Computed example of a mutant assay.
Amino acid sequence: MQQIKLLDLGIKNYKETWDYQETLFQSTIQLKIENRKNNTNDKTPNYFIFVEHPHVYTLGKSGDINNLLLTETQLTEKGIAFYKSNRGGDITYHGPGQIIGYPILDLDNFFGDIHKYLRFLEEVIIRTLAEYHIKGERSEGETGVWLDVGTPFARKICAMGVRTSRWVTMHGFALNVTTNLGYFDHIIPCGIRGKAVTSMEVELNRKIPFKEIKAKILKHFKELFEVEFN
């Protein structure tokens, strides 16, 4: 089984966390380059970061800035940060009440298939939601986890966006748990018009301890990816 170092950063600024991810990401890539150059086989590390961010909008590298519906002045007035990110996907919101997971994995330790990786991430969340009797689903062509796909009530509960280089991953998923969904009103989430967002609290009409949900996420991640956390 592959070993993954689990890092729970608590509440941390988006840019600081991004920089931290980049450090781990680039060091793993550099080790792979050195292995190839020197014909060595030093083991590459794998990481899984849990974090919760203060209010922030992030725009993916292929995103459209017009999907942000606030001016710079309005962002400042509302106390919301904004960053253009190097992940995939369009615009999304991160804030209090979200469980965010950033796996930094060398997929050469697992499988060389980005689409499979994304489907596995979705499956981790789908299985976690199922433990609370929430039926999470995939929506064709729309990465992430949704509810009531194919109906007028389709709504997203978990956004995803990743970056990969030399089969090393960074960024990841954001599961709405007790998120204030009003912050999504200031963007066109993921660039998809006419679809709503939701949270576990809204769907269940109750709060669930983050610690409990995180434990279930790790359990399903461990099963699907066949890993041990340390």
Results as ranks from 00 to 15, higher is better:
M1D: 13
L6E: 15
L9A: 12
L9C: 13
N13S: 15
K15D: 13
E16D: 11
Y20E: 10
Q21W: 09
E22W: 13
T23W: 05
F25L: 12
S27P: 09
T28S: 12
I29N: 11
I33H: 10
E34C: 06
N38A: 10
N39C: 00
K43E: 12
K43F: 10
T44Q: 03
P45N: 08
F48Q: 02
F50Q: 07
V51H: 07
P54E: 05
H55F: 12
Y57R: 09
L59K: 03
K61G: 05
S62P: 09
L70N: 03
T71K: 04
T71S: 14
Q74T: 02
Q74C: 06
L75H: 01
E77A: 15
G79D: 01
I80Y: 07
I80N: 01
F82D: 00
F82P: 03
K84Y: 06
K84M: 08
K84P: 01
S85G: 01
S85N: 10
N86F: 01
D90A: 05
I91L: 00
G95N: 00
Q98S: 04
I100R: 04
L107R: 04
D108E: 07
F110C: 10
G112D: 03
D113C: 11
I114P: 04
I114L: 15
I114F: 03
K116Y: 12
K116W: 11
L118N: 09
R119H: 09
R119S: 10
E122F: 14
E122V: 14
E123G: 08
V124L: 05
I125V: 15
R127G: 13
T128M: 08
L129H: 04
E131T: 14
H133N: 15
G136H: 07
G141E: 04
T143L: 08
G144Q: 09
W146G: 10
V149P: 05
T151I: 12
P152G: 05
F153G: 06
A154C: 05
C158S: 10
A159N: 08
M160C: 08
G161D: 06
R163N: 13
T164C: 15
W167F: 13
V168I: 14
T169S: 14
M170I: 08
H171S: 15
H171D: 09
F173M: 10
A174F: 14
A174S: 15
L175A: 04
V177L: 07
T179K: 08
L181Q: 11
D185G: 03
H186S: 11
P189F: 05
P189H: 01
C190S: 04
I192K: 05
I192R: 06
I192W: 03
R193W: 02
G194T: 02
T198D: 02
T198W: 01
T198P: 02
M200I: 00
V202P: 00
E203I: 00
L204D: 01
N205I: 00
R206K: 13
I208S: 00
P209N: 03
F210H: 05
F210C: 02
F210W: 08
K211Q: 04
E212G: 03
I213G: 01
K214L: 04
K216D: 00
I217H: 00
L218S: 06
L218W: 09
H220P: 02
F221I: 11
E223M: 09
L224W: 08
F225Q: 10
F225W: 13
F229L: 08
N230C: 12
N230W: 05
N230V: 10
